[in-house]
């Protein structure tokens, strides 16, 4: 059962920002993640600021330069079923279509998906862990089978739960934020915060700030994007391992592109190692094998998530092979 909270549904972004800037306020977009956090009383919420009175934050449109503007309140199902997104930003459509369940995709928003709280089960239940202001991480020597292999930095070992975030980073998207001090654009790649920077925050959002829209630059010709997600069950589950790719090809040769992992780190994790190996090369069996091996270089598995090394390697091999076949 949800605890009580003050509630408001402002009519303007400015009013929402004003309300969010005070007290322990939380923004309510689709609410799918916030309801769970409230139910588990993970953090105190004095006030819920509903964004549902802000229709201007909804919708998908093409920009003049051929890029894409996505309102932060656009439902994930609207995104995954949008013809332009499917045709030109396939990796994002796939990622949005892999989130949760149909009902969650109908309700959950893109903005909410990238701002969602971690799914670490210690964080989500009645353990007072580091991220909740406690003195200890329970996962580091506990049940850490779903935790990170990169970026834990010896403090907090969550993985970022979003499927769309890695796809957006791969597509070089930018988030437009609005806050008490005006609006600013932040590349998605810089939007997420590692625990070593701040163990109690997942994003750069300042108090009172919200994501209002996501912009994706026009894809350069020859770019193919994809998202692959491996999970313990085939629906309604977070990624054990996932990879978003946006690779630009010149016939069979990869010119450049991004490879971004989910289920790997506290933030969407760019695998520059894989990017470097494939850049400028044809995706031959040898190149693919080298890239698969490289994806886990530098990984620091915990006691129970060592399988992720083999999983990421296998998944990269499979995905690059598919990319090569369609090249």
């Amino acid at each position: 059962m949800l605890p009580s909270f003050d509630y408001i549904r402002p009519k303007s972004v400015q009013a929402a920002i004003t309300h969010l800037a005070t007290g322990s306020a939380q923004a309510h977009a689709g609410g799918t993640d916030l309801m769970g956090c409230l139910r588990e009383r993970i953090f105190p919420v004095g006030k819920v600021v509903s964004l549902s009175g802000l229709p201007e934050l909804r919708g998908v449109s093409e920009t003049a330069d051929g890029g894409l503007r996505i309102g932060a309140l656009t439902a994930l199902s609207a995104l995954s079923e949008h013809p332009i997104v499917i045709k030109r930003f396939g990796g994002l459509a796939q990622a949005a279509g892999e989130v949760g369940s149909p009902q969650l995709r109908n309700q959950g928003t893109l903005g909410g998906n990238i701002c969602q709280k971690p799914r670490c089960w210690y964080y989500r239940t009645d353990f007072t862990c580091l991220r909740k202001g406690g003195g200890t991480c329970f996962a580091v020597d506990g049940e850490n089978q779903f935790h990170c292999i990169f970026g834990g930095g010896g403090t907090c070992f969550i993985v970022h739960p979003s499927d769309t975030a890695p796809a957006l980073v791969a597509l070089n998207a930018t988030a437009r934020l609005a806050g008490p001090r005006g609006s600013r654009d932040v590349p998605l790649e810089k939007f997420f915060v590692l625990p070593e920077v701040d163990v109690q925050r997942e994003t750069v959002l300042a108090r009172g700030e919200i994501v209002t829209e996501i912009r994706i630059p026009p894809p350069v010709s020859g770019t193919r994007s994809s998202y692959r997600k491996v999970r313990a069950r085939r629906s309604w589950d977070f990624a054990l391992a996932g990879v978003a790719m946006a690779l630009r090809f010149d016939r069979k040769r990869v010119i450049d592109g991004r490879v971004v992992l989910s289920g790997a780190a506290p933030i969407p994790w760019r695998s520059k190692e894989v990017e470097q190996i494939v850049r400028g090369k044809e995706l031959t069996v040898d190149v693919i094998a080298a890239a698969a091996k490289a994806v886990t270089s530098g990984a620091e598995p915990l006691e129970k998530n060592g399988y992720k090394l083999a999983l990421f390697q296998g998944m990269i091999e499979e995905e690059l092979t598919l990319m090569a076949a369609s090249a």
């Binding site: 609410g31 799918t32 309801m35 509903s50 199902s77 149909p102 109908n106």
Partner: peptide, 13 residues
């Protein structure tokens, strides 16, 4: 007309 979870939806919304 769209399926949603009533348990995750505030009545006021």
């Amino acid at each position: 007309g769209i399926p949603r979870y009533a348990c995750l939806t505030l009545a006021v919304e």
